[in-house]
Amino acid sequence: MNRDVVISCAVTGSGNTAEKHPDLPITPKQIAEASIEAAKAGAAIAHIHVRDPETGAASRKLELYREVVDRIRSSDTDVIINLTTGMGGDLYLGPEEDPLKFTEDTDLVGQLARMEHVEDLLPEICSLDCGSFNYAEGDYVYVSTPNMLDIGAKRLQEIGVKPELETFDLGHIAYAKHMLDRGLLDSPPLFQICLGVKWAAEANTRSFQTMVDQLPSGCNWSAFALGSMEMPMVAQSALLGGNVRVGLEDNLYLERGVFASNAQLVEKAHSLLEHMGARVQSAAEARNTFDLRGADKSTELRKSA
């Protein structure tokens, strides 16, 4: 069991949830404030997407990321910023008779284009989705090819940003280990096990244990699960020796029928972990645990920009 746990909070995500939760953070101000509130509740890391302030739809506009990050950095709250690079991988195939006629929902760009905001803002961590997979329903495929991953991992090494290796299935862990073997990832790598996402690894104990068993020796790792399995997998992750993630990206409810805030989900996870006999790490402690030495390089690059 891990008795010194790092909590991450994924504050808004990119899913179609803006109309499902009355107070989902949408504007840069709301996303920054939610990140700060989550940090004050015990989260060491804020995992950040941005949304169109007018529509609530997911976005990858640099100016939105810049406003969120500037607001967090100018606050008096210490929190590790973890920016997504998942946007720009959405492929919606056309109809059966013409699958190459991609629909208007397709937003597919190269890996470096997905990382423009990371290059500009130099967070301590950013996500790196470690493989393509069928997502949700219909003809939607999330695209993250081996070549894209190699390009992304190499560039993140160069700019000193730690990739959080998002693994939705066993093959994703296998490819991340392949990158590690080839020196594209610095040791110790940081993995995120993602559970309950259609149609990837299910949020159950056996799937979780199997994925943990495939992680490379000496790595750091965290995990999350969607919906009602969020808190059960918080407990499971700590028991298996890992760290945890909660937040409105993954689950909208504090309990059945009661909408949550990000801070409330962090507080609930914090309480659960303490009742299990664990303590929760601060942001400063998490930097040491996850060996975020690249943070110094990123700071130097940011100051010289």
Rank of each mutant, 00 (worst) to 15 (best):
T12L: 06
G15W: 15
N16Y: 12
K20R: 15
H21N: 11
L24G: 08
A32S: 06
A32N: 03
E37M: 08
I45F: 00
I45L: 03
I48Y: 04
E54D: 11
T55Y: 08
S59I: 13
S59Q: 13
K61F: 12
D70I: 14
N82D: 11
Y92K: 05
L100Q: 11
A113E: 10
A113D: 08
M115G: 00
E124N: 00
I125Q: 01
S127A: 05
D129Q: 04
S132C: 07
K154E: 09
I159K: 02
I159E: 01
T167Q: 13
I173N: 03
L195T: 07
A200N: 06
D213N: 06
Q214S: 12
L215N: 05
F224C: 03
L226K: 05
Q236T: 15
L240R: 15
N243W: 01
V244C: 06
R245K: 12
V246I: 11
L248G: 04
E255C: 02
F259W: 13
S261Y: 00
A263Q: 04
Q264T: 00
Q264C: 03
E274H: 11
A283R: 03
E285T: 01
R287Q: 00
D291C: 10
L292P: 01
L292A: 00
D296S: 04
D296V: 04
K297G: 10
E300K: 06
